[in-house]
Design a protein around this nucleic acid. Structure first.
Length: 441
DNA sequence: GTAATCACG
DNA sequence: ACGTACGTGATTACA
């Protein structure tokens, strides 16, 4: 965003606020939604504008080298895939890929198909066929590298602003139905981190100069903590208040063992269950994720609800409330309307019911981090710091931190993020710093 | 323009 | 009986 645009945008904003104050009736002003608008969304708009204008520095030299390496690897993989399949084709075309794999090579009898009747060649489908043919690994590898190259490594350097020399995203405040932000042009909320080569992409996000470093601060398990607080479930509250590992604690309960006897598999399953809880769990969904029978998944869920009865109660209560009002609410009164909640179509109704469970949790997490962002920015300005807030990634804030301000900035960020909204569970923020975004984790 | 795929929380 | 985990955005192929 240019300087002119920013000035225009701020005066425009003041104007809008003035006009709105005349439009809003006293009755409207008493609504909780109005408070959310006045106290969170409008102040946040200015904070986001500053983050967008600030931009983030990218190590272009490093990315150019990385790009060359990736291209070489991709060419090599391409040749291997062609020689195995005995034919040159467009690997990026799911249609051609499906025909080669399932018609020509017949690597599986029961090929899965997508909604439109095409062969499915998704990561999930191919991963299930992994052992069946060596070409599968090559394809997955090829796809991963191609994605990294075209979406990130080659694309981002082209978006560097010639005036600032930095990358400037745009944060959408009114796109996500739950109240989350979204980031576009480019999306800086989905920069790779899970794979080795993906991590390399994160390394390219660097501070503005040698006097600065990257600070990353992220909430630990914020959605589960919100679930504990909103449901007031005693076991869950206790686990968080005692600083326990929540997935291990869940595993111990669900599998009825001592916490010290929880195996890695049990913990990993419990982690999936906890995710499921936040998403509005179903036996089918859980069985897919865990690779177990639906009946087994149903038993795990049943056990979960026996151990965490208030969670079940909270979920039911939200669905009932949704049926009555056709909306659900977050802790700051943000609404998600769910008109399908009373639909006669079972699928649509189930979808709305999962939303009724998920939206207050995901949305409350958004409320909390948004309020923290306003507080942190205010404090940065009050204290005239040179450090800057750069990015928000749902449960994480990223800063360009002046090294000499390390102590004060870290104190502000931790304090504001953890204390801005008080719940019956502690909110815990982990922080890291380093000479790039990867090292800050 | 839509579908498929895959990157993140 | 039926098909499902929640929320996003970018790229590519293809009608």
């Amino acid at each position: 965003m240019s300087e002119d645009k920013q000035i225009f945008y701020c005066s425009e904003l003041a104007d809008i606020q003035l006009q709105l104050s005349e439009i809003f009736t006293d009755e409207l002003k008493e609504l909780k939604l109005f408070e959310l608008f006045q106290n969170i969304e409008m102040p946040l708009l200015k904070v986001l504008g500053k983050m967008e204008l600030e931009g983030i520095n990218l190590d272009v030299k490093m990315l150019q080298k990385f790009s060359g390496e990736l291209e070489d690897e991709i060419k090599e993989l391409e040749q291997k895939i062609f020689s195995i399949s005995g034919e040159e084709f467009n690997i990026a075309s799911p249609k051609q890929m499906g025909e080669i794999l399932f018609d020509k090579m017949q690597i599986s009898e029961k090929a899965k198909r997508t909604k439109s009747g095409q062969y499915s060649t998704s990561e999930e489908t191919l991963s299930n066929l992994k052992g069946d043919h060596p070409i599968i690994d090559l394809i997955l590898e090829y796809r991963g590298l191609q994605k990294l190259l075209s979406t990130y490594v080659n694309a981002l350097p082209l978006l560097i602003d010639e005036n600032s020399g930095k990358i400037h995203t745009t944060f959408n405040q009114s796109v996500a139905a739950t109240g989350r932000l979204s980031s576009v042009n480019p999306n800086l909320q989905n920069i790779p981190i899970r794979t080795e080569k993906g991590k390399k992409m994160r390394e390219s996000f660097i501070p503005r100069n040698d006097d600065f470093e990257i600070l990353a601060a992220d909430y630990s398990q914020i959605e589960l903590r919100i679930m504990a607080a909103l449901s007031k479930d005693e076991s869950m509250l206790k686990a968080f208040n005692n600083g326990e590992d929540i997935h291990s604690a869940t595993a111990a309960k669900v599998y009825k063992v001592e916490e010290k006897d929880v195996t890695r598999e049990m913990r990993s399953h419990a982690k999936m269950v906890n995710f499921g809880i936040i998403y509005g769990i179903s036996a089918f969904g859980l069985s897919q994720r865990l690779g177990i029978k639906r009946k087994e998944a149903a038993e795990i869920i049943e056990n979960y609800f026996i151990e965490f009865p208030n969670v079940k109660e909270y979920m039911d209560k939200n669905i009932l409330k949704a049926r009555e009002n056709e909306f659900v609410e977050t802790i700051l009164g943000r609404r998600r309307y769910l008109k399908e909640i009373n639909s006669r179509n079972g699928m649509m109704r189930s979808f709305a019911e999962r939303n009724a469970i998920n939206a207050p949790i995901q949305g409350s997490a958004a409320d909390i981090i948004k309020k923290a962002m306003i507080d942190v920015q205010q404090e940065i300005e009050n204290q005239n710091l040179e450090s800057r807030m750069l990015l928000q990634v749902h449960d994480e804030l990223v800063f360009d931190m002046k090294k000499s301000e390390k102590e004060i900035l870290m104190k502000i960020v931790k304090e504001k993020m953890e204390q801005t909204i008080k719940l019956d569970v502690p909110l815990v923020v982990d922080m890291g710093m380093g000479e790039n975004w990867l090292l800050a984790h």
